[in-house]
Design a protein around this nucleic acid. Structure first.
Lengths: 218, 218, 218, 218
DNA sequence: GAGTAAGCGAGACGGTACGTCGTGTCTTATC
DNA sequence: GATAAGACACGACGTACCGTCTCGCTTACTC
């Protein structure tokens, strides 16, 4: 997707943009999102402030694009490595194993310090700035969820998931607890934890035999 | 739980505090958290800026206390009404019904416009400000979760929940999806949705007969 | 004497500077120096506060420069009119007449309301702020005194002033009483008064014949 | 002149007042008048702010009274020592010698560091605050000038000063240059300087023979 | 010698201005 | 002709003092 530079100007723009991305990500890691200012980014990137304001409407948008770009680049790297679909769910036929693998991978990703700081910052900004929130969901989360949902639908076809289950809600059951723990730092994020989530989500927390006291499914 | 006045607060003006709480909540509703400034709050409350800075370290802390106070007051109101334990889970013996009721109530609460704006703002701030995040969890979420966990433990004793299930994680399964939808506005929050969550969490998304292709519980 | 633009001031806005000078002088006249705030000046000049802080270390420095600028501009005007050396002493050969004329002109100047307010304010500030006091003396008073001292020296050469007299001290004798009356409002400032000063300073207060009871010059 | 306690001041605490005077003078010496705040004075004096506001309308008034009190106390000390009239002019019959002595004493006083700081501060404040300026003149300067003027009048009677000379203006000739030098720090204050002032003021700066080119006394 | 009114210390209060910072726009000098 | 450098208008920040206002407590007059 890298477009070859057709002129000197295009080339310089690209260099500026790259420098801005890197400065933004570095500063957010180093001093935190709220204390990072557009001027800081411009100075660190060796760029005029105006150059940033020309292309992005806000600090958060810079970071969002920088983060997306980071994702693209690491994805390319993984691609080249021949690794599995990043952010997706493998399909070995064994749903439980596949989910466990996917959640473990997601957990590892969330713990990557290069990712945590900007992602949390963007999540926070998105809560309060609706436009950015939508972009964040649309560009970062939605594509991922769509791929995961596909895997669940195939599991439904093979009878590993109940037919009447809504795959999106099922995904929420699996991913939201992880997301919440991460956002709130309200608990440890371990493989044991994600495996437990897969277990509970697949089989429920009620006794499995179906003749306990649990009643009344809607 | 009225916060008791320590010796530090001997001279503190009740009227000012109340006015500040109300101004903060009103402004966050009306113009949004980021555009609400401490100066705005002071002016609206008819108070000097210093009076705010004297007692709270940041705008977010003002809002957090204002929000806690709001909770205290509405809780008192509900108490007087003889309503059910707010934020808890009723205990009629029928776990599924109780959970559905609790989640429906929670959903209704999240949709209350007096609550949504400050709560989202605080959640956002907590993501980026660790101290505040911890306070937010400790003062707002934790007490609630503890009460809910008790209900689940009693369900375990009566055999409605598997013995080996961790109640906290079970709660995450139920509540995190709701919390995420709310925070991200990533889907409608309806009673149908919360009922579905209860169903999936109780019985899992896998077929219930237990001899489908689902394998490998940890 | 236009202050030449150094490289530091390359980007400095001429319009802002002029507007600030005018706002400062106007406000000091209208509401008095102590009640004039930097914010007032900025607002009246249609300028950001920062623009003032960027170029001047204090309110007093703004006023000092504004006052110097006012002097420069009125001097230019007088120059164009072909008027006499403002603030200097004419040289008609008749020292007494020249001094009387100069002191009358000075008195008139001090009574000009455009000048009185800022000059008093600067004098006051200079008493208490040493740096400013030195600048006030160096930029406003000293050049004037130097020109006056030249006139006295020429009078010494023509025998109208005793050879051993220190011209600076002689000037103090003439000007300090006027300055004190003005600063302290401790008496009327009239041409009669200044003429008297010239008389006393030239001939002394002792009887002129030299064989009264006055004795003992050092 | 001990201020007698009227009924208004019945309850007024002598200890507080004294402590306030001392704190005010000390702070003005140590950190300068503008940086001295009423709160500072209150804290240093171990006194509530209100106690200051109750009895003095402004910081400057506190300092003025403190300074007057200081004068009273040192005057009492000098009295006890049997020293000469402080701030007056001795009367030995030799006017020139008496003036030299008086100006030397005044110069010494002005150089006393305990006196310089508050006196300059009060002078500065008086320039800009009319009421205070009048009080400063009336309470501090006027009594002194009156006593000095008396000495000059007696000199007129004994023929050492020209009959038509206005004693107040003659005093201005002597004292204003000294005062200006002191206020502006525009020159050294030495006995040599004050002696020169006396010489010039007595005999003028023009040649004494009276048949130089100097002409035209009004 | 008890009652009471004031003055007192402490310090929170509603304000005003401060000087700094960050924003997004506009200007200038350079390459 | 585009760009870095940075001045600009604006507006919020958090701080410092202002002068006022409770608070209890002490003190010193009155009855």
């Amino acid at each position: 997707m890298a477009r070859k530079s057709t002129s000197d100007e295009a080339h310089r723009s690209r260099r500026s943009r790259r420098a801005i991305y890197e400065a933004a990500l570095a500063l957010v890691r180093e001093i935190g999102y709220p204390r990072t200012t557009i001027e800081d980014i411009a100075v660190r990137a060796g760029v005029g402030k105006q150059t940033i304001h020309r292309w992005w409407p806000s600090k958060a948008d810079v970071l969002l694009e920088a983060f997306l770009d980071l994702g693209d680049r690491t994805a390319q790297g993984a691609d080249a490595d021949g690794g599995p679909d990043p952010g997706g769910i493998p399909d070995t036929g064994d749903l439980a194993a596949d989910l466990r693998a996917a959640l473990r991978a997601t957990a590892d990703e969330l713990l990557d310090p290069r990712i945590a700081a900007p992602a949390r910052a963007l999540a926070a900004e998105g809560l309060v700035n609706e436009r950015l929130g939508r972009e964040y969901v649309a560009k970062l989360l939605e594509p991922r969820l769509a791929r995961c949902a596909r895997r669940l639908r195939s599991a439904q076809e093979s009878g590993q998931v109940r037919r009447e289950v809504d795959p999106r809600i099922a995904l929420e059951l699996l991913l939201s607890p992880l997301a919440q723990r991460w956002l709130r730092s309200s608990g440890p994020i371990t493989h044991e934890y994600t495996d437990t989530l897969v277990d509970y989500a697949l089989h429920g927390i009620a006794p499995r035999d179906g003749h306990g006291h649990v009643t009344g499914t809607t």
